[in-house]
Design a protein around this nucleic acid. Structure first.
Lengths: 102, 102
DNA sequence: TTTTTTCTTGACGATATTGTCAAAAGTAAA
DNA sequence: TTTACTTTTGACAATATCGTCAAGAAAAAA
């Protein structure tokens, strides 16, 4: 299930840009060791980093946020049975409570 | 979005059964104040309580687990934009990595 | 209204998670 | 190799979350 994490995804972007950890960490306003750990999956990226990352790498902020949230969700239901069903129920709950169009 | 929480759901079950907090807490092996807080949404139910709750109230354990996980997920994406899209992406990711039938 | 039982609350210790510092390890250039 | 730079790591402080205790508030029974 866990092929590419958000952390390794960032690492890929950063390396492709030839940018050192130190610089990206500065842009994100975090310690470089924290970023190192995020990229090696010893820590988790925080919500606030997402728009900054989008800006730095010229990505669509919305898409990146969705990717980030999705990974959070997947992490939460990792090695749970019926995770898929839980996702579906969550979806239904959102849809049910969403204001109806027309 | 948040109409009935897992906590208030438990409270409903417990009251319907005419069971005092104290007794249910004992069955769950937690302090009654913890259960009180869970039922009033000041704390979150833990994963381990779910099968015990199912047993106590004669519910389907799988369904209750799904309900529990679903709420966890919804809590995580509360007041996030594009939460629904994140859910869908998570689903796709699971489906994509699921072993194909046939 | 007293008494008993149930429920809630605030404070606090225990636990888990996070971010940082400083040093070590790894890599590349000179 | 030295030297300079990048990345990783371990230890620890800061923060957040959690469960319990003990007392108080609320409710029900007597």
């Amino acid at each position: 299930m866990q092929q590419e994490t958000f952390g390794s995804y960032i690492r890929g972007l950063r390396e492709a840009a030839g940018m050192p950890l130190r610089k990206l960490a500065a842009r994100l306003d975090i310690d470089q060791s924290t970023l190192s750990k995020i990229e090696t999956n010893q820590r988790y990226a925080s919500r606030e980093m997402v728009p900054l990352l989008a800006e730095v790498f010229g990505l669509d902020a919305r898409e990146l946020r969705i990717k980030f949230l999705s990974e959070q969700i997947l992490y939460q239901i990792r090695d749970e049975e019926d995770g898929l069903e839980a996702l579906k129920l969550a979806e239904e709950t959102i849809n049910y409570n969403k204001p109806q169009k027309q």
